[in-house]
Write a protein that binds this DNA or RNA. Structure first.
Lengths: 343, 343
DNA sequence: GTGACTTTCGTAAACGTTTTCGGCGCTGTG
DNA sequence: CACAGCGCCGAAAACGTTTACGAAAGTCAC
């Protein structure tokens, strides 16, 4: 005899009552409920998830899809781990669990997601590394499964998302540099199809326009999303005939390679060229001269992400006002020395 | 009408036959099987996982528990993501899926694991960041659930594990330094209770002994497992009266802070002091002078981890020779300039 | 004291699968 | 012709839960 049946037998009551007691239903005597709870603790009973899911039509977990090969995700894993922590925290408050679904590099992400969705091992999904045109979004819409994207997609029409404030960062970066006299500001951005580069570049263009500076497409440099991309970026910049006097970066790791590339050419960030990075990361803190960049709380971002997801799950309508979230997450300037160079 | 029933009705055969056809049972006509497969593809049928799990008593997924907040998990580059990729690859070959279970910083890891185990949402488990005395191991043994640890535990008796070759690294590091005349070799190791420090230090002691050098406990410096720990380490070393002439590191991020701390004091790695790091990481590649350290293929490690886990799952006995794996994963020396300092 | 209502609980169906068992029809053998 | 064997399939049980429904007993008002 196993499971709830064992518990019921031990207490000499029916399994229905046990279930009701455990699930906090009102139609059970408080005295019996106490006995059930005690016995459950004593016998170490935990409901079988498959049984529950089958009957209820819902697992109590939400998935967070990542791409495990993720140079492409454009982030190092401590980024995601921080976010997981926040998401797990808010989900835990509602007896939901977070399971991370790592799509391997061997598999097509959309096919992987399709499998996860149809197998119904999660009730809702968070996707990340959103592409400009991302098939996963149509797929999730069609499956009518609640989801939110960490990162906007490009063209597919509106979908729920929470994203870093790329426009804000681009804006403030350009403002800061223009205030120091810069007019030729290069952009180093990942060359993959992840949408964030495009969002950033749009913000960059808008900022230039506000300052009456004409946009020069040659200043937009797309490179690999890795530290090597940053190295390449340094070479590209130094090779230009009208060399830019400032660079802004869309991806945290680029700073690493950029510094090295510039150093090798005897060009010092902050003295000979102004550099503003993107997200503050562990490595950015240790660059010298200190990189001007933007920071955020990963955990808080995760919490917001979790809450936004719950806001799209009908089952949590009483707790979270339902609605489609499309929101930008603010980032805070961390001034350094890398943009000290003034014209 | 949903699920397999819908499919059966559509084909006008019984659900039993459909199930058998889908699962490759021999007792079904090949013609019927083809029809079923075609119809399944056409209607987009995918078996409900809860139903399967309930009936079969096994989910077809394995869990990989990580601690989402933990300093040790906060590797500078995608350590875990690389491992996930390898694990997912080997599991996928057997129609298993990997789900990552991130324990939040708010929750006790053992309690979290207990919940995951009893809810039976995975058939087997991989745990990481193994502590010296790790309650999770007793728990998993008691639950009789197949598992493997990425990292040895200390005292609890034998358990399946796959671990980086800390002894080997310690050995070769010490050998290399001794060959250059060093006798006072400091160790920088994380001060937390994760077991790897202890394993490394044991290897370090053994290596010293082999060279007839007396072990000096003051040379073992335990610091925070972060780049700041490395910074602290630099200060600690510089403050010693009998200053060591070489340092070996057990954790990759330490190099970052160590370099900065030494630089600030005008001490240059490779010229004034010899440094050998641990794992080659993204940041190590960009340190100057280049850090001597050890590299490994994360994906291959993941593959080995997955295979070792399958070797402990009875269901895969025909494919993987069953047995308890206790194995060390080799790392390859990447010579740099940081240990060029010779006495 | 009767009916209505409430509280509490037991019974049984249902969720979507897999798998055992038995049966049907056919073939081959004696 | 009888019977065994085989290939294929349908019926039904089982997995562990939750929950709709109804029943029993108690309470209350009249």
């Amino acid at each position: 005899m196993k499971g709830i049946r064992r518990l019921a037998e031990h207490l000499d009551i029916s399994i229905g009552t046990v279930s009701r007691a455990l699930n906090g239903r009102p139609d059970v005597n408080e005295e019996t409920r106490r006995r059930v709870l005690d016995a459950a603790a004593e016998l170490g009973y935990v409901p079988n998830q498959s049984g529950r899911s089958l009957r209820q039509g819902s697992t109590s977990s939400v998935g967070f899809m990542i791409e495990s090969g993720s140079g492409i995700a454009g982030n190092s894993d401590n980024f995601f781990f921080g976010v997981f922590d926040g998401v797990q925290n808010v989900l835990g408050r509602h007896h939901l669990d977070l399971v991370v679904l790592p799509c391997s590099t061997d598999e097509d992400p959309a096919a992987y997601l399709q499998r996860m969705v149809t197998r119904r091992i999660v009730d809702a999904l968070i996707i990340s590394a959103t592409h400009r045109k991302d098939h996963r979004i149509e797929l999730l819409n069609k499956a009518r499964i609640p989801f939110i994207a960490l990162g906007r997609s490009g063209t597919q029409g509106p979908h729920p998302w929470l994203d870093l404030d790329f426009e804000g960062v681009a804006n403030r970066s350009v403002d800061r540099l223009v205030a120091k006299g810069h007019r030729r500001i290069a952009v180093g951005a990942p060359s993959n199809d992840i949408n964030l580069s495009f969002v950033y570049i749009d913000g960059y263009k808008a900022a230039l326009e506000r300052h009456g500076i004409e946009f020069d497409p040659r200043l937009v440099l797309r490179v690999a999303s890795s530290e090597l991309g940053g190295y390449q970026l340094a070479h590209d910049i130094l090779a230009m005939d009208e060399r830019p006097t400032a660079v802004v970066l869309v991806y945290e790791l680029l700073a690493l390679g950029l510094y090295r590339g510039l150093n090798e050419a005897g060009v010092m960030p902050g003295r000979d060229i102004a550099v503003i990075g993107f997200r503050e990361s562990l490595v950015a803190k240790f660059l010298s001269p200190a990189l001007t960049c933007f920071k955020l709380s990963l955990r808080d971002l995760g919490i917001a992400l979790g809450e936004s997801l719950l806001a799209s799950m009908p089952a949590y309508a009483e707790i979270y006002p339902q609605g489609t979230v499309r929101r930008v997450w603010p980032m805070e300037l961390v001034p350094g020395e890398s943009d000290a160079f003034t014209l």
